[in-house]
Amino acid sequence: MTTAVAVKEVTAGEFEQEVNQYKGKVLVDFYAPWCQPCKMIAPVVEQIAGEKPDLKVVKVDADNAQELMVKYGIRGIPTLLLIENGEVLNTQVGAASVLQVRTFVGE
């Protein structure tokens, strides 16, 4: 059993330093507090964070990050982005199972 790891909440202002300047892979969960599918995927994202200590996992409140939504072409939430050294490697829209997210981040 993996221990729960707190997924860090990142603001639009912190995104460049926390995500784009990070050396390594970052899983970014764009969500909104009112979004039901976002609530469904939240424990999945937390589980992945616990399973993969080499993967940085952050969440961004989409309501407070419109410029990031536009920059990354995000039209629906939840959206997961896999970013490495500032480059988007993969995008997944909608709720997903643990298996799907494991595959998404690369087992």
Rank of each mutant, 00 (worst) to 15 (best):
residue 1 M to L: 14
residue 2 T to A: 15
residue 2 T to Q: 11
residue 3 T to S: 15
residue 4 A to D: 10
residue 5 V to Q: 14
residue 6 A to R: 14
residue 7 V to M: 06
residue 7 V to W: 02
residue 9 E to Q: 14
residue 9 E to A: 15
residue 10 V to H: 08
residue 11 T to I: 14
residue 11 T to L: 12
residue 11 T to Y: 08
residue 12 A to F: 05
residue 12 A to P: 10
residue 12 A to N: 10
residue 13 G to Q: 13
residue 13 G to R: 11
residue 13 G to N: 14
residue 14 E to F: 10
residue 14 E to C: 13
residue 15 F to Y: 11
residue 16 E to R: 14
residue 17 Q to R: 12
residue 18 E to N: 08
residue 20 N to D: 10
residue 20 N to P: 02
residue 21 Q to K: 15
residue 24 G to F: 08
residue 25 K to E: 07
residue 25 K to Q: 11
residue 26 V to F: 08
residue 27 L to R: 06
residue 28 V to I: 14
residue 28 V to R: 01
residue 28 V to W: 01
residue 29 D to A: 06
residue 29 D to N: 11
residue 30 F to S: 00
residue 31 Y to V: 02
residue 35 C to A: 05
residue 36 Q to L: 12
residue 36 Q to R: 13
residue 37 P to V: 10
residue 37 P to I: 08
residue 38 C to S: 07
residue 38 C to F: 00
residue 39 K to V: 00
residue 40 M to L: 10
residue 41 I to L: 07
residue 42 A to C: 09
residue 42 A to M: 09
residue 42 A to E: 09
residue 43 P to V: 06
residue 44 V to K: 03
residue 45 V to Q: 02
residue 45 V to C: 05
residue 45 V to H: 01
residue 47 Q to V: 06
residue 47 Q to M: 11
residue 48 I to H: 08
residue 49 A to W: 03
residue 50 G to W: 13
residue 51 E to D: 12
residue 51 E to T: 15
residue 51 E to K: 14
residue 52 K to W: 06
residue 53 P to A: 14
residue 53 P to H: 13
residue 53 P to D: 12
residue 54 D to F: 09
residue 54 D to G: 14
residue 54 D to M: 11
residue 54 D to Q: 15
residue 55 L to M: 12
residue 55 L to N: 13
residue 55 L to S: 09
residue 57 V to Q: 01
residue 57 V to F: 06
residue 58 V to S: 04
residue 58 V to G: 06
residue 58 V to K: 07
residue 59 K to T: 11
residue 59 K to Q: 09
residue 60 V to R: 10
residue 60 V to L: 08
residue 62 A to Q: 03
residue 63 D to F: 02
residue 63 D to V: 05
residue 63 D to S: 10
residue 65 A to Q: 03
residue 65 A to Y: 01
residue 66 Q to I: 15
residue 66 Q to Y: 07
residue 66 Q to C: 08
residue 68 L to Q: 02
residue 68 L to P: 04
residue 68 L to D: 04
residue 70 V to P: 07
residue 70 V to W: 07
residue 72 Y to I: 05
residue 72 Y to W: 09
residue 72 Y to D: 02
residue 73 G to E: 02
residue 73 G to M: 08
residue 75 R to W: 09
residue 76 G to K: 13
residue 79 T to Q: 08
residue 79 T to I: 08
residue 80 L to E: 00
residue 80 L to N: 01
residue 80 L to W: 00
residue 80 L to P: 02
residue 81 L to D: 01
residue 81 L to W: 00
residue 81 L to C: 03
residue 82 L to W: 00
residue 82 L to H: 03
residue 82 L to D: 01
residue 83 I to F: 06
residue 83 I to R: 02
residue 85 N to Y: 05
residue 85 N to A: 11
residue 86 G to R: 08
residue 86 G to Q: 05
residue 87 E to C: 05
residue 88 V to P: 03
residue 89 L to R: 03
residue 90 N to A: 14
residue 90 N to D: 12
residue 92 Q to E: 07
residue 93 V to E: 02
residue 93 V to I: 15
residue 94 G to M: 02
residue 95 A to D: 04
residue 95 A to K: 03
residue 95 A to Q: 09
residue 96 A to K: 03
residue 96 A to P: 06
residue 97 S to K: 11
residue 98 V to I: 13
residue 100 Q to A: 14
residue 101 V to C: 04
residue 102 R to Y: 00
residue 102 R to M: 01
residue 105 V to M: 01
residue 105 V to W: 00
residue 105 V to D: 03
residue 107 E to T: 07
